[in-house]
Amino acid sequence: MIEFSGLSLYDAVFTAAAGVTVTAALGVVLFRNIIYSALSLVLAFLGVAAIYFQLNAGFLGVIQILVYAGAISVLIIFAIMLVMNRPAGRTNLTSPRTREVFTGGTITAMMLTALIAAIGLSDWPKTVLLKGADDTVGMLAELMLGDYVVAFEAAAILLLVAVVGAIILAKGVENK
């Protein structure tokens, strides 16, 4: 790895990616057109993926693009398009009432506090993990399919159950 000092290229790239992410995230909330919100969600995902790439977590970044930007947001846009029956310009919340602002604000504040506490109280490694950084996929595979295989399979079964449940909800059960 190359040592950086001052405002290096590394910082510049991080600033750009973080800026895009934050701006897009703000766009998700503030756009009045829900399609614009969904598309800026894609942009936010891509920004997060860029940050992952910069942290040498390439696998995570690629999965972020593949699953979130490529599949989930597409499904979100798809669902919006299929069910939207009024002009797109007034689909998002325009003037939330006081109660909603209060509820939302409280939840956000609680989440933010928890997050800051978690970040502050954790014992982070001070240096970037450089050894074996080229084989992040292998390390991840060993962890997921070795130490945490039960949790991994449980998550897979959970997803399967969800899929079956969705099919039953959509298609209904035939009584014989």
Partner: peptide, 20 residues
């Protein structure tokens, strides 16, 4: 890239959004 193949697939999936 050490995850080149995965990168290719994931970027390829983005073109859906452009069509949308």
């Amino acid at each position: 890239l050490n995850i080149g193949l995965l990168f290719f697939i994931s970027i390829g999936s983005l073109s859906t959004i452009a069509l949308l």
